[in-house]
């Protein structure tokens, strides 16, 4: 870890302005991802701006009948909120499937969206990695590399990492919108669909935030009803990132929404695939993972996604 300076502002716009002004500054919220990465020197901010004093820790109702979640609402609080449990059950289920109780107590809404990949080559600073060290190559794509956990779609020749969040997959199914404040003090709304970027030639650019831009809230539209489920598949029963996860919202008429985790650099969903829901799991996954480009080690994720969705459809 490199030495860093630290401040804890109380105003969101001022925090964003500071982040843009101080070169090499970063926000820290729960710290459960950033501090680990700093210890390994995968991230080396010279200045930390602690957002925990910004007071953005409430869940309020919107005029449109939805909910506005402050970025500092912890994963534990969010999943336990009565309104979330009642109207957005897929979100509660997804968060509960992630990390551990202790981590969820610290993890925040904004921090969760911005957690970085778990690719083992990203984590070993001696390895080439275009995401960590742009231009150094992709450690996971070389001959004989270990890629079982990595992505099968939306990836590129530069990077095949996945976004590891469970929460974001449910939020994607719910059409969540990220609210931010920019360094110049403006607020912005970014649909989650557009929030995470595909790697292309620039896997180091992971999201649509501009330099210094601060997440203030995540807004959930009015409840969409339906049966909402989340199924996370992994080798051990708990405390592991998803091999594949499926968020499903299914309406009584058989229509609905499907988002996948563990397969792509962002929560993976498409309107065309949603439209296939009445035709069953095979049709949905064929559409959703059309053009997938897996490695030999992770090709099973495609079958797994289909079978997982099939199990859920039988129940929903």
């Amino acid at each position: 870890m490199k030495a860093f300076s630290y401040e804890k502002p109380t105003d969101a716009a001022a925090a964003a302005a500071r982040a843009a002004e101080v070169e090499g500054a970063k926000f820290v919220a729960g710290g459960t991802n950033l501090l680990d990465l700093m210890k390994l020197q995968i991230e080396a901010p010279v200045h930390l701006i602690d957002v925990n004093g910004l007071g953005l820790d409430e869940i309020t109702e919107t005029d449109e009948g939805g909910l506005r979640i402050g970025t500092l609402v912890t994963n534990t609080t969010l999943m336990a909120d009565d309104r979330i449990r009642r109207d957005y059950a897929v979100l509660t289920r997804a968060i509960a499937a992630g990390a551990s109780g202790q981590l969820r107590n610290k993890a925040t809404t904004g921090g969760n969206l911005l957690q970085r990949t778990r690719c083992p080559y990203f984590y070993d600073t001696a390895m080439p990695c275009n995401k960590r060290a742009p231009g150094s190559g992709c450690g996971a794509l070389s001959e004989g590399a270990f890629s079982r956990q990595l992505g099968v779609i939306g990836t590129s020749e530069s990077c095949i990492a996945t976004h590891p969040s469970d929460m974001a997959v449910a939020m994607r199914a719910l059409d969540a919108v990220v609210e931010t404040v920019t360094p110049s003090g403006n607020t912005r709304q970014i649909p989650l669909e557009e929030f995470h970027l595909l790697p292309g030639d620039t896997p180091e650019q992971e999201n649509a935030l501009m330099d210094g831009e601060l997440i203030t809230h995540v807004v959930l539209p009015a409840p969409v009803g339906g049966v909402q489920s989340y199924h996370k598949v992994r080798d051990r029963a708990s405390y592991a990132f998803a091999l594949v996860s499926v968020a499903l919202i299914r309406q009584p008429d058989g229509t609905g929404r499907v988002a996948l985790g563990g397969v792509a650099p962002k929560p993976w969903r498409s309107a065309e695939a949603d439209a296939e829901l009445p035709n069953g799991a095979r049709a949905v996954i064929a559409k959703l993972l059309e053009g997938a480009n897996p490695t030999e080690e992770n090709a099973f994720k495609i079958t797994l996604a289909e079978r997982t969705l099939a199990a859920m459809l039988k129940e929903a």
Binding site: R118, P120, Q149, D235, R236, A237, S238, Y239, A240, F241
Partner: peptide, 10 residues
């Protein structure tokens, strides 16, 4: 995180 030993739930 990636070398998975059994956890309580297992």
């Amino acid at each position: 995180a990636s070398y998975e030993v059994a956890v309580h739930a297992d």
